[in-house]
Design a protein around this nucleic acid. Structure first.
Lengths: 210, 210
DNA sequence: AAGCGAGTAGACTGCGCAGTCCAATCACTG
DNA sequence: CAGTGATTGGACTGCGCAGTCTACTCGCTT
């Protein structure tokens, strides 16, 4: 007596991946192979037919989630405020989503166990975003739309403003993020533009009511 | 053959506390009782003479670290920039210290296992700091030193600016924070003050492209 | 029909951990 | 000096987990 319906021939792997995706983001690396296999509706041995070690699957999932969370920053025609606001909305949506918070949580917890993975994620995620944003801001500085400061500092500051404290709050308090993200992102970008407005000319560079 | 020198009579408890302090911040809740006891130079049973369960000691340590990281925000005579800069320097020092990062890491990882503890820490830590800062900023708004916006939003924004992205970076990249904290805090406070400066006086029109 | 690749249930090993138990040993106090 | 309480090393139980192994069963190809 063994082998019931022999569930699925080839999508076993994809079912394992999506089960592991959910399990790791919810439980962290502590999600056991037994639970992941059960969640995928698959035998434990099937797991080991596809992945030599649990850590391999973990790395694959983390890298996948990181890629899913990457965001484009289009610098086309739009003016700076429009461009940054668009970016800010998406950035907040992703960073404060269940996946974003889960990834952050898991990675913060396991950075000691998987230092290389953590570094890789940082470089292909936040670091890349910062670099892209820095380029956009440097261009704005060159056009005179922003004051002449360190563009990297400005980028870091904007990214911090966009999610910083709320990130912490959702991480610890268990609440789930509301959907007023877009409004909030607009307010934040306005603050940012005031903070980095060029101050050379007259006391200008203010954004007047609609 | 048992019982070598019977190390210490009463400071066993304090040695356990400090060993656990270090172990939990380094390894998270996964730090085993055996390792903590060894680190304290104490027998495992001694641990259980002082604490009924591992989770009890964990909670005690976490609350203690949280208290250590709390910072005062003095609103005395100083002008606003001075006041915020002082605060910012200390805030960055603590939040980006080994203890601050460790606490954050551990709590993010274990928030699911200890939801009440996480909430408590959030309320007695970040939430309290935010509230205090909100009061200070509200006073400044009332004095006309800041524009008339939601003081809570302003407080959240400043706290985000002070540590947000760097927090993430140190958490993932393994680097340790440099000591240029004071300078950085000053720059950030200046940005904040520009972002929230009152805009009533100067009539200057729109943003000009130079 | 035979064979093969992949899947399945479940038992099994080895390990680390929380928490318990115990017999021996100190230090201190009456 | 006897007694008490805290401490100590070490053995021990029970549990959950990673990873292995076996015996069995499909579905497909030749």
């Amino acid at each position: 007596m063994a082998a019931h319906p022999a569930a699925a021939p080839e999508d076993c792997r994809s079912r394992l991946l999506s089960a592991a995706h959910a399990a790791f983001l919810e439980e962290g690396y502590g999600a056991s192979v037994d639970r992941i296999a059960a969640r995928a509706g698959v035998a434990k041995q099937t797991f080991y037919n596809h992945f030599p070690h649990k850590a391999d699957l973990f790395g694959e999932i983390i890298r996948q989630v990181t890629a899913e969370l990457l965001i484009a920053l289009d610098d086309d025609g739009l003016n700076l405020r429009e461009c940054l606001t668009r970016f800010g909305i998406v950035y907040r949506d992703k960073a404060l989503s269940a996946a974003g918070l889960g990834l952050f949580r898991v990675l913060a917890a396991e950075a000691a166990r998987f230092p290389d993975l953590a570094k890789t994620v940082y470089r292909t995620g936040p670091a890349r975003t910062t670099a892209r944003l820095t380029a956009v801001l440097q261009a704005a500085i060159d056009r005179g739309e922003l004051r002449d400061t360190d563009a990297d500092f400005a980028a870091t500051t904007l990214l911090s403003m966009l999610v910083g404290a709320e990130h912490t709050r959702f991480l610890f308090s268990g609440e789930l993020p509301p959907r007023m993200n877009s409004m909030r992102a607009g307010e934040i970008v306005d603050c940012f533009l005031r903070a980095f407005a060029p101050d050379i000319p007259s006391p200008a560079a203010k954004r007047n009511k609609s």
